[in-house]
């Protein structure tokens, strides 16, 4: 590989800096994402793992500007997007329904969701919904769009695409619906694909098919992926880089290997110990004590200190741990490493 192509591949596509998102509710203000910083490189896959309430979905919805009206994005937050024509765009400054944002949403950043059933309209055919996206973002007529739609369905491995294109979403099975969803997204040729728990509701065999498909399409089209999941097995298989989130914070970041095999944060370590492993059948699982704190009662200091076994009294519950660099790619927020 020549140096120039390597240079381009390493280009940063998306840079999120100090992202804060809170929601106004009747019971008070809920801070869902509290100062999150990450970036996505061209052609790479960033995995975000976290349990419910960790703010992983809210973070990516902020990138797409798909948050509900009650959401407040922090003043200092910045989301910089490297557009297809080379411009650096500050997404937080764009109007939600403005022209520029609508061009980016779908056209440059595509998104697939967890529930393939509810993300399709039940009263339009699959083909219509793919065509709608194509007509919005590309200069083609209806006939050409129809052709592209069939082509895309074929590309994502749906057999008999010329028949399927005229079917409704309820006529497809879960795995096929997710494939069709990917077809909708890819028909606009995005440079970044955000996948929010895309395989969570699918069977393992279908999950393996979808993961393989995404992998193959990424190689073919060179797009970057943000892959959100709570499944550590899936993340280990798909991600180049992993960010571990808990209660709106990124606690640890590193390559997939560093996170799974050399994790440094007690939270990541306990998550890995809590999943059943085929090598240790029948052994007792090490559960993380306590429950995930309610969003209205977010603990001060390190967000994990209420459940951490290695908590340092007087330190972890009062101060926020700073970023510690373990290696050039591996960073962690924990007092044990400061």
């Amino acid at each position: 590989m020549s140096k120039t192509t390597e240079q381009i591949e390493r280009d940063t596509l998306l840079e999120v800096n100090d992202l804060k998102v809170s929601f106004k509710t009747d019971e008070g203000i809920i801070v869902a994402v509290d100062g999150v910083t990450f970036s996505v490189e061209r052609g790479q896959t960033l995995g975000i793992v976290g349990e419910s309430g960790s703010g992983k979905s809210v973070s990516v919805k902020a990138i797409m500007q798909l948050l509900p009206r009650t959401a407040i994005v922090g003043q200092e937050s910045s989301i910089q997007w490297c557009s297809k024509n080379g411009d650096i765009i500050e997404i937080t400054r764009l109007k939600k329904a403005g022209r520029e944002m609508r061009r980016i949403r779908g056209g440059e950043i595509g998104m697939i969701f967890q529930e393939p059933m509810s993300s399709f309209s039940p009263v339009h055919t699959i083909g219509n919904q793919i065509m709608e996206a194509i007509l919005q973002h590309r200069q083609v007529n209806k006939l050409e769009a129809h052709e592209i739609a069939i082509d895309m369905l074929d590309k994502v491995g749906i057999s008999n695409p010329s028949v399927r294109v005229d079917q409704y979403s309820f006529e497809l099975s879960g795995g096929m619906r997710q494939r069709a969803m990917i077809a909708v997204t890819l028909s606009m040729n995005p440079s970044l694909l955000i996948a929010d728990e895309p395989t969570t509701s699918l069977d393992v065999t279908i999950q393996a098919q979808i993961l393989e498909l995404m992998n193959q399409l990424q190689e073919e089209l060179g797009m970057a992926i943000i892959f959100i999941t709570h499944n550590l097995g899936v993340i280990a298989q798909v991600a180049d880089e992993v960010a571990v989130m808990y209660l709106g914070h990124i606690l640890e970041r590193g390559t997939a290997k560093e996170i799974v095999l050399q994790s440094q944060h007690p939270y990541t370590q306990s998550l890995l110990r809590a999943i059943p492993h085929l090598d240790r059948l029948g052994e007792r699982l090490t559960a993380i004590s306590g429950d995930i704190p309610s969003p209205l009662e977010r603990p001060g200091g390190c967000p994990f200190h209420t459940r951490c076994e290695q908590v340092i009294a007087g330190v972890c519950d009062t101060q926020r741990p700073a970023l510690t660099r373990i290696s050039s790619t591996h960073t962690v927020h924990c007092f044990l490493h400061e």
Partner: peptide
């Protein structure tokens, strides 16, 4: 066999090689 091969291993060094089943149930 196909089910077993589709379990994503929690280890990036072990590459998943799912026995791909044709079609669906």
């Amino acid at each position: 066999e196909a089910l077993m091969s589709a379990i994503p291993e929690v280890n990036p060094d072990v590459e998943m090689t799912p026995v791909s089943l044709k079609g669906e149930i």
